[in-house]
Nucleic acid binder design. Sequence first.
RNA 1: GGAGAGGUGGCCGAGUGGCUUAAGGCGGCGGUUUGCUAAACCGUUGUACGGUCAAAAGCUGUACCGGGGGUUCGAAUCCCCCCCUCUCCGCCA
Length: 430
Amino acid sequence: MLDRAFIREHLAEVEAMLQQRGMALDLGRFAELDRRRRELIASGDGLKNERNRASEEVARLQRDPASRGGAAAQEAMARSRALGEEIARLDAEGKQLEAETEPLLWSLPNLPSPQAPVGASAADNVEVRRWGAPRAFDFAPQPHWELGERLGILDLEAAARISGARFAVYRGAGARLERALANFMLDLHTARHGYTEVLPPALVNSRSLRGTGQLPKFESDLFKCEGHDLWLIPTAEVPLTNLFAEQTLDESMLPVSVAAYTPCFRSEAGSYGKDVRGIIRQHQFQKVELVKIAHPDRSAADHEQLTRDAEAVLQALDLPYRVVSLCTGDLGFSSRLTYDIEVWLPSSDEYREISSCSHFGDFQARRANIRFRPQGKTRTELAHTINGSGLAIGRAWIAVVENFQAADGSVEIPAALRPYMGGLERIAIR
RNA sequence: GGAGAGGUGGCCGAGUGGCUUAAGGCGGCGGUUUGCUAAACCGUUGUACGGUCAAAAGCUGUACCGGGGGUUCGAAUCCCCCCCUCUCCGCCA
């Protein structure tokens, strides 16, 4: 959420920056409603002040037996009552204005960072760096769904029977590979990168989803539990960030770094026809998520660090990747600066997103009320939030299977994962 | 799911309609005293939204005692609905 006063004082600037996101928005009406709202508050508060004075007078007169129930007391009560009626009218109008401006405020996306490249779509994203080189195959590399089915480690037909399209069943070494990837990533981030492991709920309430920005605008991307105010998490970002909602942290604790391995659920409404083959886009997938609650003065560096922490996973697995900075038109709703990490997939001959590392500034912190107290000061300040996948397990699974495939259809296990695979070096057809 | 007890500031805790500007304590911050620490004493203390101001500070107003509604001239206090916590019962991996 943007700061109301900031919008008021930088109207043209806010409009221009939202336009970079592709939003043609006229904030003139908001400005007018906001001006009227402040007028109402000013006059309403003035009347409440008068009523408080009248009430105090009633109390004073009623305490004294000589004046109790007298004409002066009656007059003060009548005055207080009349003021109350006027106040009720102003409050009702104020509530109406809130009802008109609040939803807009909750629906406005974050302002892009000046560092984010200006552009309209993913085609305008800017490559920041590359690591490793795509392997040269002396045979035609197979897509993961063919390798997986042939090796008996991936069963999409069974998943379709059990649940429907866009679900997966992993079997044997395939299931073990998921678990190995998750354990390897968690160990790396907790032992080497200073993250605290958290196991959060996979169902959250709507308040949490508002806090991180999935609600109110993106309800159709989510799965909701019928009859409950509970939703399946689309990412562990939601419970991890909201761990700190309504909290005031001590400055010396920052940055707080947490990591979690959870399932993620996305309805992927509107994505039909895209990535229908294989397990690139699923209703359920697993992910290790990294979240930092940061000091505003150091959050930019913490964002860079979190991105490097995620990259370290791919380096350890020897998977080639590149990092791109999302352009203003491709940025997520809550983000002001995002680095996507894209891993090389030989079967489709392209880099595909495997992690999205975003800096939110105080946008989520304002929605979720995440604060810290600067040392020696009484006033609290909004913290900054940062998160990124470290990494998406399903896509890491694809990357391992496709990049380490052999001509005979077997898959070599990267050295770093072997201890997590019971020493297994290769998944081969039995 | 059922019954009972609760929810008050950073924490503990008093408070059954107006002498409450939420007592008192702890903690934090500032100060006095002091060779240093401690103790003692004094002062101070949250959030949001407005107003004033070029801005900040300051000053000032309003609201906030789990959330929402209601009664009343006036609600932490009375009434209704909801949420959460604890204890017991039921169910259950």
